[in-house]
């Protein structure tokens, strides 16, 4: 679009209408997103309680944050949840996509079924899985009813494994989307590559791992960012499934932010926690932006 070389020296007034039309959006982005972020970071250094006020207390809020067991537990949970959710949703998503790519019958039916959970909100997903994992009504009850009297499966009531119960629900909800993205990536691979690989006698799994996946790099990077941002802001799923319990075993940072900003009436503490979350997102997004936009010149 904009790559054709300009004949007139002043590029500022080209496509003036389009530029004027985009002003509101630019304004919104600057004021709401950037402005709001800066405001939050500034107020995280104050002792604001119910209402924001500019009394700076230095790093007090951050010191308190990092000495709070609940916050530390939240971070730990997010790490476990994040790493596992990244690995599993990419693997499962890719395998499902590869299976669907085998020119099977009723592909669109399977695709719809697998993508369908993504249409549900996290709240609904959380409630559904709360019931499924409830020992008195769900899977455990069902299996015991079949005759295995000692079968035990109640992740939501066991502190040491509750985070996996949430992971199951999240994977059920999210892998469909990953699969679709991967499928689109697979469809973008030239048929000739497959033919050439077949002529060379390379087994299918090797073709996938050594040829197709490296070619799908852009799709993987995009998927990674989508999953990662979803991980950092996970909140509603936890609220619906366990409300952070038992104890603090399934607390997540976003929930800490909400609780301290609103129910504890301590904005400063909430802002400090959300600034830490922003930092996490930046750590994820900056390398991505570098890979996506910085790398373009090299590839030409």
């Amino acid at each position: 679009m904009a790559t054709e070389t300009s004949k007139r020296p002043n590029t500022l007034f080209r496509n003036l209408n389009a530029k004027i039309a985009s002003l509101p959006m630019i304004f919104t982005a600057l004021v709401v997103f950037v402005g709001g972020t800066v405001w939050t970071v500034v107020y995280s250094f104050t002792n604001s309680r119910l209402l924001p006020r500019l009394q700076f207390v230095g790093l007090d809020q951050y010191e308190r944050l990092w000495s709070t067991p609940r916050w530390l537990a939240s971070i730990e949970n997010l790490m476990i949840y994040g790493v596992l959710s990244l690995i599993f949703s990419l693997t499962i998503g890719f395998v499902l996509a590869a299976l669907l790519d085998q020119k099977i019958r009723f592909e669109s039916v399977f695709r719809t079924i697998i993508l369908y959970p993504f249409a549900l909100s996290f709240i609904v997903t959380g409630l559904v899985w709360q019931w499924l994992l409830n020992p008195d009504f769900g899977v455990q009850h069902f299996v015991r009813g079949l005759g295995w009297e000692t079968f035990t499966f109640n992740p939501l009531y066991d502190q040491s494994i509750v985070i996996y119960g949430i992971l199951i629900a999240a994977l059920w909800q999210g892998t469909g989307l990953v699969m679709c993205l991967m499928l689109a990536g697979l469809r973008g691979i030239d048929e000739d590559i497959w033919k050439a690989a077949r002529v060379d006698g390379i087994p299918m799994w090797k073709t996938y791992i050594f040829i197709v996946i490296p070619m799908m790099r852009p799709v993987f990077v995009t998927t990674l960012v989508i999953i990662a941002s979803g991980i950092v802001r996970v909140y509603d799923l936890v609220v619906a499934q366990t409300s952070g319990g038992p104890g603090h075993a399934s607390e997540v940072p976003a929930k800490y932010v909400y609780d301290y900003m609103f129910s504890a009436q301590n904005l400063g503490q909430g802002f400090a926690a959300s600034t830490m979350m922003l930092l996490t997102v930046l750590i994820v997004v900056v390398p991505w932006a570098y890979l996506e936009f910085g790398g373009r010149n090299k590839r030409g």
Partner: peptide
């Protein structure tokens, strides 16, 4: 409420 919340935690 802040103290109450910390106690709750």
């Amino acid at each position: 409420e802040d103290t109450n919340n910390q106690l709750n935690d």
